[in-house]
Design a protein around this nucleic acid. Structure first.
Length: 552
RNA sequence: UGCGGAAUUGUGUAAUGGUAGCACAGCAGACUCUGACUCUGUUCGUCUGGGUUCAAAUCCUGGUUCCGCAGCCA
């Protein structure tokens, strides 16, 4: 995994370490189990994990499951799977925020006894009114000065289920006139009569994030609670809680900008919408920016960490170009993926001077840059297929592939010359007739002439029919920023970026590929064999410029 | 209009008073049995006005722009 580079969080930690050299750095990744992990989560994971690693500290996974109405075991499991896949081992342990509910309750009672929290009867609407606005201070709740005894009694009855949802809240008594709205007596407990995915019906009151999170951090021994920038305004409240609970450990919250990538969204709310409306196949659709979607698209953990590492850690809002992500996976796959031939749009080629019925096998390197990857045998015969794009009857300037009277190399095999073409009634090319330079075979011509173009080919009688799903764009969502508030997502999906090619062909050795194997279709792009589509292969990342029709 | 953040090339990110660097993208060329890869070269930047200093992206000061905050979500 990429080591973390110089950034402002490291500076803060170094500073803390200078003050207290014995400090054992302890971080955590605290996802709410209400959706699948995505590339933005990978950034948070990487930051927390790699910082713990750098300082020889610990890293926890903690499910932040304090809202029973949104969370589900499906997500708990998927998060664990994805984290495991990434290889970010939580060496500090796996925890659940809900396991601290007893402590949260105990500390809340303590706050009440100290006069620092009170039960409030205001409705949600009333509370909003009392809160004031961004520019005007709030005013005190009429229930703010209840006696400690009354608060204790009411809070216990809240816990015992005597009140309906929303009837009462427990609030921290801080400052209704604070310029920071989060400090205006925030609710720390609410009543929700909903079964919890882990606690069942044990509770009908649930602590809110701002109250529960610092407690969880403090109890787990977290030293640095690293989260995204929108929580920066919550830091004073985080500190207030830490200061007002009887725990030695005083974790420190620090914030970094969340990851944005062009042509997609990270919000779980939107991603869930895509899944639930059926616009994508599921959370693991290769168009999704989820980790499982990227996995199906062929991304590897190392490429993902490479990407988030290159994107960097800072506080300024930014949107990283998806080309960087593609670069990272291309770079890795280029050195690791085996090459295979596939013809996306076949056109028949007949080698007139090649004996009918003869088959010979050429050895093609599995990875030209890595001889250790070995070779494979690819059958050659009189009748072949090439990609339609590799032939031009009227070639543009600098067209190096097959053209009338031109010579071209069949990759790993003979040099052939196109003699004439046969068209069907519609005038489109039906058959291309060539002669091969049989003297040279898979070698260079004796007369030293240079052949500029090399194209891929398949012997028709051995070619393996496949379906190819083309995901030409990394993601399918465009101009997300332009989507009006409240508008459905479907209208803004670029569904054209997914194409299914039914008549594609591949070399026979592909039939032996295993699920998850990654290859490079020579001159076409990278793909991963995906069992979900049986005989279908996903084209995942295009080769840069490889199909540019002509060069300027 | 309140509070809190942030502004470095097309994008992202370094430089912590001392040569503005790196990566991606772009452009040009070389190489190539993948027009990929690789290699070489190259365009382009410190939001803005003032100040301090021998020296400012960095310090001070005025302005501008962008992001976040008014859930009993996280």
């Amino acid at each position: 995994m990429e080591e973390i580079k110089s950034n402002f969080i490291l500076d803060i930690i170094d500073e803390d370490l200078k003050k207290n050299p014995d400090l054992k750095i302890h971080t955590r990744f605290p996802p709410e189990p209400n959706g699948y992990l995505h590339i933005g989560s990978a950034k948070a994971i990487w930051i927390n994990y790699s910082i713990a690693k750098k300082y020889g500290g610990k890293f926890n996974l903690r499910y932040d499951d304090t809202n029973p109405s949104k969370e589900d075991n499906e997500y708990v499991n998927s998060i664990y799977e994805d984290l495991k896949w990434l290889g970010a081992e939580p060496n500090g342990g796996v925890f659940y925020g809900s396991d601290y509910f007893d402590k949260c309750y105990e500390f809340a009672v303590r706050l009440i006894k100290q006069g620092k929290a009170y039960v409030c009867d205001l409705s949600a609407d009333e509370m909003r009114e009392y809160r004031g606005t961004l520019t005007e201070p709030g005013k005190n709740s009429p229930y703010r000065d209840r006696s400690i005894e009354e608060n204790l009694d009411l809070f216990e009855r809240m816990k015992n289920g005597e009140f309906p949802d929303g009837a009462k809240t427990l609030r921290a008594k801080i400052d209704m006139a604070s310029p920071n709205i989060n400090m205006r007596d925030p609710a720390i407990y609410r009543i929700v009569h909903t079964s919890h995915h882990r606690q069942g019906n044990k509770w009908c009151i649930y602590p809110l994030y701002d109250y529960a999170h610092p407690i969880q951090d403090a109890l787990e021994g977290i030293t640095h609670s690293l989260c995204s920038i929108e929580f920066e305004n919550h830091r004073p409240l985080y500190n207030w809680v830490v200061e007002n609970i009887p725990v030695e450990n005083k974790p420190k919250q620090r914030e970094f900008a969340r990851l944005n990538v062009t042509h997609t969204v990270m919000s779980k709310r939107y991603l869930r919408q895509l899944v639930e409306t059926g616009l994508v196949d599921g959370w693991d659709d290769p168009r999704m920016p989820t980790l499982c979607g990227l996995r199906r698209r062929g991304y590897t953990p190392s490429a993902i960490f490479d990407f988030v590492s290159r994107a960097g850690v800072a506080k300024a809002y930014s949107v990283v170009d998806y080309e960087l992500l593609e670069h990272c996976i291309r770079e890795e796959l280029n050195s690791t993926a085996q090459r295979r031939i596939a013809i996306l749009n076949p056109v028949k080629v007949v080698i007139d001077n090649y004996p009918e019925g003869k088959t010979e096998y050429f050895d093609l390197p599995n990875n030209p840059q890595n001889p250790e990857a070995g070779t494979r045998k690819v059958p050659f015969a009189r009748e072949l297929y090439i990609d339609a794009d590799d032939f031009a009857e009227v070639p543009p300037p600098k067209f190096f592939r097959m053209k009338p009277d031109g010579e071209v190399r069949l990759m790993g095999a003979y040099i052939v010359k196109c003699n004439n073409i046969i068209k069907d009634d519609n005038g489109s090319v039906k058959e291309i007739h060539c002669t091969a330079d049989l003297e040279t075979g898979n070698g260079n011509p004796a007369d030293g002439r240079k052949i500029k173009g090399t194209i891929h080919w398949l012997a028709s009688k051995y070619a393996l029919p496949i379906n190819v799903m083309l995901y030409d764009q990394l993601f399918t969502i465009e101009n997300v920023a332009d989507i009006p508030e409240g508008k459905g997502y479907g209208d803004y999906l670029n569904l054209d970026s997914v194409k299914k090619l039914d008549n594609a062909l591949a070399e026979p050795s592909l039939s032996e590929a295993n699920e998850g194997d990654k290859f490079q279709f020579v001159r076409v792009g990278y793909f991963v064999k995906d069992s979900k589509y049986a005989d279908t292969f996903n084209r995942i990342v295009g080769l840069k410029d490889s199909y540019r029709p002509e060069n300027k």
